[in-house]
């Protein structure tokens, strides 16, 4: 498939909060190599997302599931030598996806629920492990997962 390059998309994203240094990316890959999500999901590639934004592949970026995979851990931002704020850019892309109808507000809210739950999940399991009642903790979490 041959696509054309368009710069409007990057102008929109770079004008949003956190998008300020988007253009500075020189594609070194430091963000992707440090990303904990990239290690478990090969399709999640922060550098590639930035490239796609820079080259104007708007439909693909906003309609795909990749932008919702980010943990928001900020590891990429600690390593970027050009101070590109990928975590912030992901937030901007999610807002755009909702605003332009690529995703529903309900979907975005649910992703937040998942984020909140996964944090609780981790906390409870670690605590269970520490207290020696991991099975109990697991069972409690299986009950709660039904609500998400």
């Amino acid at each position: 498939m041959i696509e054309t390059v368009d710069s409007q998309f990057k102008e929109i994203v770079s004008s949003m909060p956190g998008g300020v240094n988007l253009n500075l990316c020189y594609a070194c890959g430091a963000c992707t190599a440090v990303c904990p999500v990239s290690r478990i999901a090969e399709e999640f590639n922060p550098r590639k997302i930035i490239r796609m934004v820079l080259l104007g592949l708007k439909d693909e970026v906003l309609s795909g599931h990749e932008i919702w995979l980010c943990y928001q851990c900020h590891a990429c931002m600690t390593r970027c030598p050009q101070d590109v704020r990928f975590t912030e850019i992901i937030k901007a892309l999610r807002r755009l996806a909702v605003a332009e109808g690529y995703a529903t507000q309900d979907f975005a809210d649910k992703v937040e629920d998942v984020d909140a739950f996964s944090k609780i999940l981790r906390k409870e399991l670690v605590k269970g492990l520490y207290d020696g009642d991991l099975d109990e903790a697991k069972a409690a979490m299986i009950e709660r997962i039904k609500d998400v």
Partner: peptide, 15 residues
């Protein structure tokens, strides 16, 4: 101008 973009793995075109 058509060129291959390595990082996104596909050919792009500019008029």
């Amino acid at each position: 101008v058509e060129f291959y973009e390595h990082l996104i793995g596909r050919t792009l075109k500019i008029k």
